[in-house]
């Protein structure tokens, strides 16, 4: 028998391995770097932005990018760089809040419908109903009824994106529910809460996280689209969407008005999607090992099964 200490070091080796796994996952790493940079920009916006994003300067309207104004100025002479930074802040905030709220509510709704068949019928019909509308149209309708402001945009986006998460959670929970290990837990006398919290939710986590990062990205796009249509963040507050909207009118002679906010949206969404895919690989303990083994064995010219160690 080894001593307690040796068992502990053994455990630490395992833990380090999971950190190493994050670093070997390039997709996740790239995505995380982009997200972290965007998050830092959002948080530190007041310190990064060189100008007040609301300060109008009629003499310097629609100036191209220069040393004073990195991204140029808009049709009111406001500094575009500062506006894009603040716009990123609002877009990132909306995306994050929508992803978290829709994720939590969707998880609860999905679990309830997986475990209570009567509520399942009711909840899933509501979900189908929401799903039947194109998401932008529905969000537009909700904002139109409640009036455009940040909170209403948030509410609209959360309502629109709960169904996709609830469905993913429900179908995954239905699979886990029928697994033999749940039966084994019942044979040991485990409480429903133990089965749910300690065993079911961790097994739902990878599809849930992928769906949440997807919602994060899509919420940013939808918010931009809403703002573009004039139903999102009301002017003069900058959001990536309403900067694009302003840029649309001058797109032929002031390209910077659309290119910069547009690239920020692309970058943000790309980062989120990369991180989502990377997380999926990381959370499945089988995938990375298989990949690494595969590349190693391909080098040595051998074929590999799903479990290389057997």
């Amino acid at each position: 028998m080894k001593s307690e200490a040796e068992v502990k070091t053994n455990y630490r080796v395992k833990k380090q391995k999971s950190i190493a796994r994050i670093f070997s996952n390039h997709m996740l790493l790239t995505g995380l770097v982009i997200i972290v940079i965007m998050a830092i920009i959002s948080v530190l916006a007041p310190f990064i932005a060189p100008y007040d994003p609301y300060a109008i300067d009629p003499l310097n309207r629609l100036k191209p990018p220069s040393v004073e104004h990195f991204f140029g100025t808009d049709d009111f002479g406001r500094d575009l760089f500062s506006r894009v930074i603040y716009g990123t802040r609002i877009s990132f905030f909306i995306g994050a809040v929508v992803a978290i709220l829709a994720g939590v509510i969707g998880l609860i709704v999905g679990l309830i419908s997986a475990y209570y068949s009567i509520l399942d019928h009711i909840l899933m019909r509501i979900v189908d109903g929401i799903y039947a509308f194109p998401s932008i149209l529905l969000a537009l309708a909700i904002v139109a009824v409640r009036g455009p402001d940040v909170v209403n945009v948030l509410i609209a986006l959360v309502i629109v994106y709960i169904p996709s998460i609830a469905r993913v959670v429900r179908s995954a929970a239905l699979v886990v529910k029928e697994q033999t290990f749940v039966e084994a837990l019942n044979a040991q006398g485990a409480s429903k809460w133990r089965v749910l919290v300690i065993h079911t939710i961790p097994n739902l986590l990878s599809p849930l996280i992928i769906q949440v990062t997807f919602v994060f990205a899509v919420a940013i796009i939808t918010e931009a689209a809403l703002s573009f249509l004039g139903a999102g963040i009301p002017a003069p507050s900058p959001s990536l969407g309403n900067i694009l909207f302003d840029g649309k009118n001058v797109i032929y002679h002031s390209w910077w008005m659309t290119v910069f906010p547009g690239s920020f949206i692309i970058l943000l969404v790309l980062g989120l999607n990369l991180a989502g895919d990377g997380l999926r690989d990381l959370l499945d303990p089988k995938i990375v090992n298989a990949k690494r083994k595969k590349s190693r064995l391909i080098k040595t010219g051998k074929k590999v099964g799903r479990h290389g160690q057997q």
């Binding site: 697994q179 033999t180 290990f181 039966e183 084994a184 044979a187 040991q188 006398g189 065993h199 961790p202 097994n203 986590l205 303990p285």
Partner: peptide, 24 residues
């Protein structure tokens, strides 16, 4: 009241992989 008795009555399953939580 049955829970404490479950301790005495256990089960071994047919599919050994499915009977263990893959995340634990």
């Amino acid at each position: 009241n049955f829970r404490p008795i479950r301790e005495d009555l256990q089960m071994i399953f047919q599919d050994p992989l499915a009977s263990l939580d893959p995340k634990k």
